[in-house]
């Protein structure tokens, strides 16, 4: 390891500094700063309307922040996300899933995963020209893309449904497929918007295993919005708590569990702190 590598690994994957988002007079996010370390699972929690999804939308280029700087570090390069278009952010290494699943429902599961490797394949197909001529080089890259897709399909246990329309899969399968699709873009940071919503307890456990696998085996940092506190407390390394657009606490799951400000936000001003610990959402 060179000194630069050590320096690199010590610096956070994602830096959010003074992020503020205003819609007209409404301040959805008010001066929020936090950092996500590489290979960490960072959870963003908070009551409904706290501004969690807005943070995601700023990060992934759907909104342009009013104030603030968002820095993604990858391979020694710094990407200033607040200045980039959504599709450039995705190419820089931020992948996301959506609160309401957004698969390409009339395309097959396999196609969903192939589309996610669009930019790689576009380059290989010579921006379509080589592909139209049926060049060997392109078919090889396409075969690799199918292999990557198959790898993820095996991981999410959907290989035998590969050629079925994504819209015909069961809800939990669609959730997993959306995560696999995001992973097929080969990101550095994976942003998951309520991945456990609507899952039964068994599926939630499978989801936890999948996320831990992604972190261990692929070294991808995960940013997680989640209401299911059992999932959050189980797998997060670091938790950021938002309320009314402001950051009210930050720390390890243990610290957050005992933080009076968090308990107040979830249970109200005079909440009985002892009884409902950690089960707030």
């Amino acid at each position: 390891m060179t000194a630069a590598d050590i320096l690199e690994s010590a610096r956070p994957l994602l830096d959010v500094e003074h992020l503020t988002m205003r819609f007209g007079g409404l301040v959805a996010i008010d001066d929020v700063s936090f950092a996500a370390a590489p290979k960490d699972i960072t959870a963003i929690i908070g009551p409904n309307g706290a501004g969690k999804t807005t943070v995601f939308n700023c990060l992934t280029g759907f909104y342009r922040p009013s104030v603030g700087r968002l820095t993604l570090r990858r391979n020694g390069q710094e990407h200033l996300l607040e200045r980039m278009e959504g599709h450039d952010i995705a190419q820089a290494g931020v992948a996301r899933t959506f609160q309401n699943i957004r698969l390409f429902s009339q395309m097959s599961a396999l196609e969903n995963l192939i589309v996610a490797q669009h930019n790689k394949l576009m380059r290989a197909s010579g921006y379509t020209a080589f592909g139209l001529m049926g060049m060997q080089a392109y078919s090889e890259v396409e075969a690799q893309a199918v292999e990557l897709a198959r790898y993820w399909l095996e991981r999410i246990e959907l290989v035998d449904r590969a050629d079925d329309d994504a819209g015909n899969l069961a809800y939990g399968q669609q959730r997993r497929l959306e995560i696999a699709r995001a992973m097929c873009t080969e990101p550095a940071l994976l942003c998951l918007d309520e991945p456990a919503a609507g899952l039964n307890p068994r599926e939630s456990v499978e989801l936890e295993e999948l996320l831990l696998f992604i972190r261990e085996q692929h070294g991808v940092g995960i940013l997680l919005i989640e209401h299911d506190m059992s999932v959050v407390m189980e797998i997060s390394d670091h938790i950021v708590v938002l309320d009314y657009g402001q950051k009210i606490a930050e720390g390890t799951p243990q610290e957050i569990r005992d933080d009076p400000a968090v308990i107040r936000a979830y249970l109200g001003e005079e909440g009985s702190a002892g009884a409902e610990r950690g089960g707030g959402a």
Partner: peptide, 29 residues
């Protein structure tokens, strides 16, 4: 028929299905 099986053709269909999701996968709409 050929271009449908190339990345650009799949990207067209992906855009038809869901533009937001396509953008989040790095497709320039």
């Amino acid at each position: 028929l050929r271009i449908r099986k190339l990345p650009v053709g799949r990207a067209w269909e992906a855009l038809r299905e869901d533009e937001t999701a396509s953008r989040s996968l790095g497709i320039n709409p």
